[in-house]
Amino acid sequence: PPQTPIRAAMTSIQQLRGDLTSSGDQPSTHLATYFKNCTVDPTQDVMKRLETLGEAFSQRFGQAVGPHCVTLGRQRFNLGVKLYYKIMEAMLKSEEKRLSVQNFSKLLNDSTFHTSLLACALEVVMATYGESSFKTGGYNQGSGDAAERNMCFPWILDVVNLAAFDFYKVIESFIKADPTLSKDIVKHLETCENLIMERIAWRTGSPLFELLRQEHEGGTAEQVETPAS
């Protein structure tokens, strides 16, 4: 049958759900082993963070779509958690191969890493369901319904309280770690990446400025330009 936007969306959703059918909402045995191999076991912090962010996400989803949709938000979050675990495991396997180490204690106890990875997984889920789609002509300026406008990227960053610059760090590794991501989703993440690089990372309060300052003080960087430049 001919491809239509609806059929394409349904196929993407079925593919995402299908890919995650075998993924549990708990860490797999392999991932749990990575946790146990850490100098400081991150398991409890990971669970606690998911509990807190799950509540925040569901509530904000409900506010954006409607109070009756808090449960729907919880379903989206749970799907995001499955993807988060799946990608984390793939990333760690790749790092184990590259670095020949099995103790990732520092990375796995880094709250920013977990929040960035989860935010990226949730962005993929919402983009698949068309809830974070960019309109032609610029982001957050479309004529779609309120829910679409409200939940467009960088909405997720506000929900999980994450700096855009930290979200940027995870995008490429995320795409590398999941070769099954559809072209449309990769394109969506690339659009997020470009928005961060061109605008969001340069907003007041971005951690990028502190990094640039440190580089400058180290004497290795050229004169740092002002944000306006």
Partner: peptide, 21 residues
């Protein structure tokens, strides 16, 4: 299968990006 341009070098992974190497 997609046109994404991978910019990271082989020696760069998620550990380096979060300063955890």
């Amino acid at each position: 299968s997609h046109d994404y341009h991978f910019g990271l070098e082989d020696h760069e992974g998620i550990s380096e990006l979060f300063d955890c190497d």
